[in-house]
Computed example of a mutant assay.
Amino acid sequence: MIDALTLDQMRIFVAAVDQGSFSAAARKLGRVQSAVSQSIAALEANLGLALFDRSAKTPRLTRAGEALIKDARRVLQRADELKARAASIASDVEPELSFAVDPIFPHGPLIASLTALSAAFPKLPVTIFTENLGGSEQRLRDGVAQFAIAPMPLDSPRDLAADFLSAFDVAPVVSAEHPLAREPSPVSRATLEPYVQLVLTDRTPLTQNFSGGIVGHHIWRFADLSTRLEFLLAGFGWCNMPLHLVREHIAAGRLKTLELAERDPFQFRVHVMRMRGTEIGRAGRWLIDDLRRLIAACPEAYRAEPQPPS
Rank of each mutant, 00 (worst) to 15 (best):
284 G>S: 01
78 R>K: 11
309 P>K: 14
50 A>S: 15
41 A>H: 14
269 R>L: 04
122 P>Q: 06
10 M>W: 00
227 T>P: 02
168 F>D: 04
183 E>S: 11
51 L>C: 04
169 D>P: 02
220 W>A: 06
241 M>G: 02
177 E>T: 02
188 S>K: 01
272 V>W: 06
202 D>M: 05
187 V>G: 11
1 M>S: 11
113 S>W: 01
67 A>Y: 13
239 C>F: 04
114 L>R: 02
309 P>A: 15
26 A>G: 07
305 E>N: 04
302 Y>S: 07
137 E>N: 09
47 L>Y: 12
80 D>Q: 09
163 D>T: 14
121 F>M: 07
16 A>V: 01
29 L>A: 05
164 F>L: 09
127 T>H: 12
10 M>L: 10
150 A>C: 06
251 A>H: 13
225 L>R: 10
59 P>V: 08
229 L>T: 06
26 A>Q: 03
192 L>I: 03
168 F>E: 05
80 D>C: 07
86 A>G: 03
120 A>C: 05
129 F>T: 00
210 F>D: 15
86 A>R: 07
47 L>Q: 13
203 R>S: 10
57 K>N: 12
75 V>W: 09
27 R>K: 13
28 K>I: 07
130 T>P: 00
84 A>W: 01
17 V>W: 03
124 L>A: 05
271 H>N: 05
279 E>H: 02
128 I>S: 08
180 L>H: 04
196 V>F: 12
247 R>N: 13
54 R>T: 15
270 V>C: 08
9 Q>W: 05
275 M>Q: 11
24 A>D: 07
295 I>E: 12
242 P>D: 07
302 Y>H: 09
171 A>Y: 14
217 H>F: 14
251 A>N: 05
59 P>K: 02
79 A>T: 03
93 V>H: 08
269 R>S: 13
12 I>Y: 03
310 S>L: 14
35 A>C: 00
257 T>R: 03
203 R>W: 15
262 E>T: 11
286 W>S: 11
28 K>Q: 12
20 G>P: 08
9 Q>R: 11
34 S>L: 02
65 G>F: 00
239 C>D: 07
221 R>V: 13
294 L>H: 04
92 D>M: 05
179 P>M: 10
282 R>S: 03
2 I>V: 09
105 F>Q: 04
46 N>D: 15
192 L>K: 01
28 K>W: 09
193 E>Y: 00
310 S>M: 12
129 F>R: 12
32 V>D: 15
